[in-house]
Design a protein around this nucleic acid. Structure first.
Length: 393
RNA sequence: GCACGGGUGGCAGAGCGGUCAAAUGCACUAGACUGUAAAUCUAGCGCCCUAUGGGCUACGCAGGUUCGAAUCCUGCCCCGUGCA
């Protein structure tokens, strides 16, 4: 199912091929996020022409309004989305964080947290409550309520029918102390086993997720545990500490447990620099909302750094968004034109920006693969970052 | 001509004696966004300074009342509606 095809000589970076019933994925790869069975603003044709290899949708968001049943009746996610290429679904475990601590404190997976607050002391503000059996989600505004158990998550993901599915986990946050994170980790492991036991479709790969926050022994324990069960791929999830250095350490801690022949997915990461660093640490897969969300918000990624296309300095800029980019957007429109569209509230601006950003990230991964195959990864990385940051500052 | 109603920051539109450099929305200027409750959110938006504070000029124009006026009074100039 996964094979390494090339290794960089001066780092842990590797290139490989991940096989699925809907096609192969060359790794390192970027998984484009399509939470609700669509990548916002963009068509499957757009995705393909932007070099997309694989898309990830979300079990919670598709099940909270019973959408997964309709998708099952249609014949599955591939058909419902019009995407006859590799697909992945997330279990819903991340929503413990995003609808809990993330929502209550506006926190993200990496970075500063106001540690004087502890979401455990304010459970009424959270939309996700965790118990031994599973997660209880409630949305008072929308009046929705649902319970996600390991088995339920698998059933939903089997109804959706993605090529790769995830075991239900609990994504903790840096708010949680060692004791909580440890208890949560043991629970996530029990859930992971339940998912393995309950899984019935043979055409889907089940992957497990390493948790443990920024606690070395917990991360090592989790990595050891998960890699010794029959998961076909390994996700690295949860709180990544409060700095990029912490994330780096976490990956280093768990690296010794990684089986060489299984793909490693750093969930929810990230931006180009994070990716370049993590690839060097042996990571194969990434996914993040950055390309799509930021595109809709007017942030465009280029080889010379990120730009906000709405800035007035692009008012008369007749150059391409990125001179090196070959995406459909860059072939047809200038910075000035795209800015005008954004400022006019033209909805197709979001689509054009999304096409470009997706293309940029897919292209970055393509270059990374090439550099690894040529065993010039460190050189490539240094050159890319130099240019990326130089022009951006 | 008479009678009402109204003239507020780039625009729309609150305020109707002090807490008003003036609500709110739009526009504008920046910023944020890392397993998507995000086509969203945050901040700034009269001028100047020794800038989590201080000064100056402002609510059609010109006067007046008052300790104090965008807010009250008088005249003038515009705009809308009705009646001649």
């Amino acid at each position: 199912m996964f094979s390494v095809t090339a290794k960089d000589l001066s780092s842990k970076a590797r290139a490989g091929i991940l096989q699925t019933p809907h096609g192969e994925i060359g790794t390192p790869a970027y998984i484009i996020v399509g939470t609700s069975a669509e990548v916002r603003t963009v068509t499957p044709e757009d995705l393909l022409s932007a070099g997309t290899q694989i898309v990830i949708a979300n079990a919670y968001h598709l099940a909270v309004r019973e959408e997964h049943e309709k998708i099952r009746q249609k014949g599955g996610l591939h058909i419902a989305m019009g995407w006859n290429n590799p697909l992945m679904t997330d279990s819903g475990g991340f929503q413990v964080f995003s609808l809990g601590a993330g929502r209550v404190y506006g926190a993200s997976k990496i970075g500063f947290f106001p540690t004087e607050h502890n979401p455990l002391m304010m459970p009424e503000k959270s939309m996700a409550l965790v118990g031994e059996e599973g997660i209880a989600f409630s949305d008072r505004e929308r009046g929705s309520h649902m319970v996600l158990t390991p088995e339920k998550s698998i059933r939903i993901q089997e109804a959706l029918g993605a090529d790769i599915i995830y075991a239900l986990d609990e994504c903790t946050s840096p708010f949680h102390d060692y004791e909580y994170t440890k208890a949560s980790l043991d629970r996530t492991h029990r859930w992971a086993i339940q998912c393995l036991e309950v899984k019935s479709r043979k055409d889907q790969q089940l992957w497990g997720i390493i948790q443990g926050g920024y606690f070395r022994d917990l991360r090592e324990k989790s990595a050891y545990f998960l890699t010794r069960h029959e998961f076909e791929g390994i996700g690295i999830g949860g709180a990544m500490g409060t700095s990029k250095q912490h994330m780096r350490e976490i990956i280093d801690w768990i690296y010794p447990s990684f089986p060489k022949n299984k793909p490693r997915h750093l969930l929810g990461i990230g931006n180009p620099v994070d990716i370049l660093n993590a690839v060097e640490q042996g990571i194969d897969l990434f996914d993040c909302v950055i390309p799509t969300r930021e595109a809709r918000h007017g942030s465009l990624w280029t080889t010379c750094g990120r730009i906000n296309i709405r800035n007035s300095r692009f008012k008369d800029d007749n150059s391409k968004i990125d001179e090196e980019c070959r995406c459909a957007t860059c072939q047809t429109i200038t910075r000035k034109q795209l800015r005008t569209m954004f400022c006019d509230g033209d909805l197709s601006a979001g689509r054009l920006a999304t096409i470009h950003n997706i293309s940029f990230f897919n292209d970055l991964m393509r270059k990374i693969r090439k550099a690894i195959q040529d065993s010039k990864y460190s050189e490539f990385k240094a050159g890319f970052i130099l240019r990326f940051r130089e022009a951006n500052s």
